[in-house]
């Protein structure tokens, strides 16, 4: 049951990966990688339940918290041409 859910989410990652690789603008890729990060959070929770260790949920929460750092850096670079 949980494995089926995990495989479905991985198939969704493949769909988003097409946009991340294909492209055309940088914003498509940023959004795609951000969605991959969100799917990673769900995937971690599911893997925790597959291996019967539900405290992986905490790790999934921390991932959700650090997911946005790279996105903010990229958007700041696109906005001002630097990170200062």
């Amino acid at each position: 049951m949980f494995e089926a859910a995990a495989i479905l989410i991985l198939i969704a990652v493949f769909l988003v990966l097409y946009r991340a690789v294909k492209g055309p603008t940088i914003y498509d890729r940023v959004l795609a990688v951000n969605v991959i990060g969100t799917k990673t959070v769900v995937l971690l929770a599911i893997i925790g339940f597959i291996s019967a260790r539900p405290h992986f949920l905490d790790i999934a929460l921390v991932y959700a918290l650090i997911n946005f750092i790279a996105t903010i850096a990229i958007l700041k670079y696109m906005d001002t041409g630097g990170l200062d």
Partner: peptide, 29 residues
Amino acid sequence: LLACGVLLGGYSLIMAVLWTNLNAVDVAF
């Protein structure tokens, strides 16, 4: 190169899931 950097961020996220699947939680962190 900016797109490369973005893609490598996604690479690390998937790699972290792989580490978690191998039960190496702190490496995944």
